[in-house]
């Protein structure tokens, strides 16, 4: 067990290092310059060049990379034009936003978390619920309706669903406020009211995959020997389905859910854009558009970290849920 975890962690760190290098190189391929963006008028090329030098953009690339990575662990001194000392974990100073990237994160991360976590709960409950119902009522109208609903969801585009939901609930029926983010602790009702459409739009799309998957898994498990044995032993239907079948069927669902949630936390660009919410995804897009290196690096790293961590958690859960899986 311990060996497995160590091995997993090592490979995760390796992945993150690779992601950081790729995103760093990617930035230098961008035909954008964060410095020239600052002066739409009367730009003086010599002054700009001095600013670039002071920001370290003219240093050798590997030095810039190492300085940045070092800053994450030990903090670094960024000079007076970038807010001075930046303590660990220092994600750099965004020249474009004129603030430390950690400050940007403390602002936008709660938005993304507030969108994804409730949405994930809804789509898991809805998806797995639909899948179970249709598996247990296989071949009935209920089965077809559930799977039809799921497939329709999977065929919709988020921006289309999102726009139609907004037209109906906000501008026509006027029963919901325009999507916005209020911190949960400040006003829970307002928090939910501002995000509820985003949750359901996201959940509607995602639940389809889970409904289909959990139906297939459930059917497969139900046909396996240990279930028949359990039934033959005289265990009640509810006990067999609830304890044994669901437990076996849930393993692959956990895998996909882990990856989906991890991926969604890394940036729900389309959701955030559709509903006009400023979360991690939109921040990343803005950063790429303005050539804001520290913010690009930080958003890519954080979203990659979410996925990598989700992967490890999934592997561990696997072992806990399904006794057939042994960790090597």
């Amino acid at each position: 067990m311990l060996r497995f975890i160590v091995k997993r962690l090592l490979s995760a760190v390796l992945t993150l290092v690779a992601v950081s290098i790729v995103s760093f190189l990617m930035f230098f391929a961008l035909p954008r310059d964060p410095v020239s963006g600052m002066c739409p008028k009367n730009c003086n090329p010599e002054r700009l060049e001095r600013v670039r030098q002071e920001l370290g953009l003219r240093d050798p690339k590997h030095e810039q990379y190492l300085a940045y990575m070092k800053g994450i662990f030990t903090g670094r001194d960024l000079g007076s034009s970038q807010g001075g000392r930046c303590d660990a974990p220092c994600l750099g100073y965004s020249y474009v936003n004129s603030e430390a990237v950690t400050d940007t994160f403390s602002r936008v991360l709660p938005v993304t978390l507030s969108i994804v976590i409730p949405a994930a709960i809804i789509w898991l409950v809805l998806g797995v619920g639909l899948g179970m119902i249709s598996a247990l009522r296989k071949g009935t109208v209920l089965d077809r309706a559930a799977i039809g609903f799921a497939l329709t969801g999977a065929s919709m585009q988020l921006y289309f669903v999102g726009a139609v939901l907004q037209l109906v609930f906000i501008y026509t029926l006027k029963i919901l406020p325009v999507p916005h983010y209020t911190p949960l602790l400040q006003n829970p009702l307002d928090w939910a009211g501002g995000l509820v459409l985003a949750w359901f739009a996201l959940a509607f799309l995602f639940s389809a995959i889970y409904a289909r998957l959990s139906r297939a898994q459930m059917l497969e498990t139900l046909s396996e020997d240990f279930i028949r044995t359990a039934r033959a032993k005289g265990l009640s239907k509810g006990r067999v389905y609830g304890r044994h079948a669901l437990r076996a069927a849930i393993t692959p669902i956990v895998t996909i859910a882990g990856l989906d949630v991890g991926g969604a936390l890394g940036g729900t660009v389309i959701t955030e854009t559709t509903f006009g919410l400023q979360g991690l995804g939109r921040t990343a897009v803005d950063a790429v558009r303005s050539g804001d290196l520290p913010t690009i690096m930080a958003t890519v790293l954080v979203s990659a970290a979410f996925i990598v961590v989700a992967n490890i958690i999934v592997d561990l859960l696997y072992a806990l849920i399904d006794p057939r899986v042994r960790l090597r």
Binding site: L16, V19, P31, G263, G267, V285, T299
Partner: peptide, 25 residues
């Protein structure tokens, strides 16, 4: 498998956003 993990960890949209406009140039 590690390359698969790596590709999964990369935020696709952000990379596409950075790479697509650049290639034509």
């Amino acid at each position: 498998s590690w390359i698969i993990d790596l590709a999964l960890a990369m935020p696709f949209l952000i990379f596409a956003l950075a790479v697509v406009p650049t290639i034509a140039l």
